[in-house]
Amino acid sequence: MAIARTLKHYLDEHHVRYDTVTHTPTETAVDSARSAHVPVHQVAKAVVLEDDSGYVVSIVPSNNRLNLEWVKEELQRDLHLATEPELGNLFDDCDIGAVPALTQAYGLDAIWDDHLKHVSDVYIEGGDHQHLVHLSGEDFRQLMRRLPHSIISASEDYSSWMYE
Rank of each mutant, 00 (worst) to 15 (best):
V122L: 04
T20P: 00
L49D: 09
H41L: 09
E50W: 00
V40E: 15
S153I: 12
A101N: 01
A4H: 01
W161P: 00
F91Q: 04
S53I: 00
E156G: 08
S150H: 15
G107Q: 04
D51H: 04
R5L: 11
L132Y: 01
I59A: 08
I111N: 07
T6H: 02
I111Y: 11
E13S: 10
A33E: 06
Y55W: 09
P148H: 04
L147K: 10
D109F: 00
G88L: 11
S32M: 12
S120H: 08
E125W: 07
V56R: 06
A2T: 14
A2Q: 12
R17D: 11
R146Y: 14
H149G: 07
V38M: 10
H149D: 10
R5C: 00
D31I: 00
L75C: 12
A36Y: 05
H115I: 07
V133F: 01
S153Q: 04
I96W: 00
V133R: 02
D114A: 08
L75R: 08
P100N: 08
V71C: 03
H118E: 14
P85E: 13
S120M: 07
V71F: 05
D12H: 08
G127W: 03
N67A: 10
Q104E: 15
N63H: 15
L11Q: 05
N64F: 08
A29E: 02
Y158K: 13
M1T: 13
R146T: 11
D114T: 09
S153R: 05
W112P: 05
H134C: 07
D95M: 12
D121Q: 15
